[in-house]
């Protein structure tokens, strides 16, 4: 059989809590802008879902510079949710991206439960969005970030409030900066989440010994990249065992092997963040790499692999 003939036989599509994706690859919020920034480097129509930059009700200017710093096999960022606000996003940024026929997932952050609800209502009324990721895990803003993601009761409230405003798949993004990830995941499920996204960045910092000061303008930042992969794998493994929801897994994925590891511990789909900075065509390459793997293994589809390494 020729390679082309084989390729039609394998099923790479996944259903992430009601959102149909042509393949399990998503690009992570905040690392892919609004899609157009990368259009010269990657075929966006080949990406399963594009999760856009975290959006708030009002425009935010973001944190003081420097906002990023490279660390061993990773990086710290403290962007501070710089974004133009939900209305500008929906009216000006979204149209050019959704015309590519790609799944666009909004990522929202509010200061209060009501703000999450209002953001969701605005998105629900607007065509062109395939799902809503709830950023309840941003370590870089004073409000509307991690505080929501570290308290199970608040997690449940936020998810419930959003669910009552929209029929779109609702995907809370969990913070790894907690002692018991499973209780947070259960709270999200109890609130009515359709899927879970995990993990966001791990809170960290860097120190400048010449200036005797923290490096980042915000002092603390979120650690991402290959350095956090083992933590992400562990948390997804734990949640997969205990909570019956599809998982969008990510944290340090930079090649096909990494993506497979996430799928094997229970991720139905994977998100690529920092990896885009290293190789702008990485999403397309890993989508192809996964397909090749499924063919080589003689499987019918990618779904057969989900959770296969969970004991």
């Amino acid at each position: 059989m020729t390679k082309e003939a084989k390729q039609v036989l394998v099923d790479m599509s996944v259903n992430l809590g009601g959102m149909k994706m042509q393949n399990p690859i998503a690009v992570a919020s905040g690392t892919f802008g609004y899609g157009r920034e990368y259009q010269d480097f990657v075929d966006i129509s080949r990406i399963g879902a594009v999760i856009v930059k975290g959006t708030t009700l009002e425009e935010r200017y973001g944190n003081l510079a420097p906002r990023i710093y490279e660390t061993p096999a990773g990086m710290l960022n403290a962007i501070g949710l710089e974004n133009p606000g939900i209305d500008v996003f929906l009216n000006d940024y979204l149209p050019s991206l959704s015309q590519d026929g790609v799944n666009v997932v909004a990522n929202i952050a509010g200061n209060t439960v009501d703000e999450y609800a209002l953001l969701s209502r605005k998105i629900d009324k607007h065509p062109g969005i395939a799902g809503i990721e709830l950023n309840i895990s941003c370590p870089n803003v004073k409000q509307g970030g991690m505080q929501f993601g570290t308290d199970p009761e608040l997690v449940k409230q936020v998810v419930q409030a959003v669910k009552s405003e929209t029929k779109l798949p609702v995907i809370p993004k969990l913070s790894p900066n907690v002692t018991d990830i499973v209780s947070i995941a259960k709270a999200a499920r109890d609130g009515g989440a359709d899927a879970l996204s995990m993990i966001n960045t791990l809170m960290g910092m860097a120190v400048d010994i010449e200036r005797k000061r923290p490096v980042l303008g915000n002092i603390f930042g979120g650690l991402s990249g290959p350095a956090i992969k083992p933590v992400a794998l562990r948390m997804i493994y734990q949640v997969y065992k205990e909570v019956d929801l599809p998982i969008l897994g990510g944290g340090g994925i930079v090649n096909t092997r990494d993506a497979l590891e996430f799928i094997l511990v229970g991720a139905s789909a994977v998100s690529i963040g920092t990896g885009n900075f290293v190789n702008p065509a990485i999403a397309e390459e890993i989508a192809q790499g996964l397909e090749n793997y499924v063919i080589e293994q003689g499987l019918k589809g990618i779904n057969e692999l989900v959770g296969a390494a969970v004991l």
């Binding site: 690392t31 802008g33 920092t274 885009n276 702008p280």
Partner: peptide
């Protein structure tokens, strides 16, 4: 980081 205007870093 990105060099293309995507990360706001």
């Amino acid at each position: 980081a990105c060099g293309v205007g995507a990360c706001l870093g």
